[in-house]
């Protein structure tokens, strides 16, 4: 950020004429206002346009509360799982040299490239009642798809690269010297990780967790495919929004949507805050 600000103070030789600057800023900001600002305000206006009471009622409806609970449960499983994966993957990839590293990175990136609908579909193919594994599961009364485990799996898939992708470049940039110094001073592996590596990556880790959590709570396509849309049971918040909207219950739909929007705004706020923290940290280093 500070970089951007300092570079905006410049000599006139390499500056556009003032009308050009104003035009570009107007076009850019106008574009963002229409594309992002308007939908954002529409959510809150629609949610509240019949007053605060129906808004609260929609939020406190048992189905809505069930959706909140389920969303929290799914995120509470998916995020820690991806943190464990991200820490292991970044340790192995950033701190060691081995062949095939680039290929491994591409594999980790795969879920980013796959349509959310396909991410849901693969679990239906694997665990659905028509598949061998699925039949065995049904016989043993274990339900995965159209139930909570399916939602969790699809969410893990969708958010799989988030933490790892945040940590790998950070740890690569930090190199291995501090860890080597710690080992030379007699620290064991766990002490080195906990006292040297972890404090160095904590902001990056938090950043990854934040993005991972936002996506986990907001994912729609993948969970929509595996959910089965059972009200009060397998509906996460985004799915609940869809059901209410399709029932033309717009106030309730936007009320629930406003919850998710607030989550998104908080995420952005924390993200900006952390980027500032990052930037100063980088400058100090």
């Amino acid at each position: 950020m500070s970089n951007a600000e300092s570079s905006s103070v410049k000599s006139t030789a390499v500056q556009e004429p003032w009308w050009m600057r104003v035009l570009l800023i107007a076009v850019g900001v106008g574009f963002l206002l229409v594309l992002i600002g308007l939908p954002l305000s529409a959510v809150f206006v629609e949610a509240l346009h019949k007053g605060i009471k129906p808004y609260w009622q929609s939020l406190l409806h048992p189905d809505a509360l069930a959706a909140v609970r389920l969303t929290l449960i799914v995120a509470a499983i998916a995020v820690p799982f991806n943190v464990l994966f991200g820490l292991a993957a970044s340790w192995a990839i950033a701190k060691f040299e081995f062949s095939g590293k680039q290929f491994l990175l591409t594999l980790i990136d795969l879920p980013f490239a796959v349509s959310p609908v396909i991410s849901g579909l693969v679990y239906i193919l694997l665990f659905g009642a028509h598949a061998a594994l699925g039949r065995w599961l049904v016989d043993n009364d274990i339900q995965i798809v159209f139930a909570v485990p399916g939602l969790v799996l699809a969410t893990i898939f969708i958010t799989f690269p988030f933490v790892a992708r945040e940590l790998i470049p950070l740890m690569q940039e930090q190199g291995t010297e501090e860890e080597e110094a710690a080992i030379l001073l007699g620290a064991n592996g766990w002490q080195t990780f906990r006292r040297v590596t972890l404090p160095n990556i904590k902001w990056g880790l938090l950043y990854g967790v934040l993005l991972c959590n936002a996506r986990a709570m907001g994912e729609f396509g993948a969970v929509s495919v595996v959910s089965g849309h059972i009200r009060g049971e397998t509906n996460t918040l985004p799915l609940h929004v869809e059901i209410l909207y399709n029932e033309y219950n717009f106030v309730a739909a936007f009320a629930v949507a406003s919850l998710l929007t607030i989550l998104a705004l908080i995420t952005l706020l924390l993200k900006s805050f952390m980027e500032m923290k990052f930037a100063t940290g980088k400058k100090r280093h």
Binding site: I36, V43, A214, M217, G218, L239, T267, L268, K271
Partner: peptide, 14 residues
């Protein structure tokens, strides 16, 4: 970054 953070269903209905 809002399109990253905002659930797609919310963006859709909005």
């Amino acid at each position: 970054d809002l399109p990253f953070a905002l659930p797609t269903a919310v963006a859709g209905i909005a």
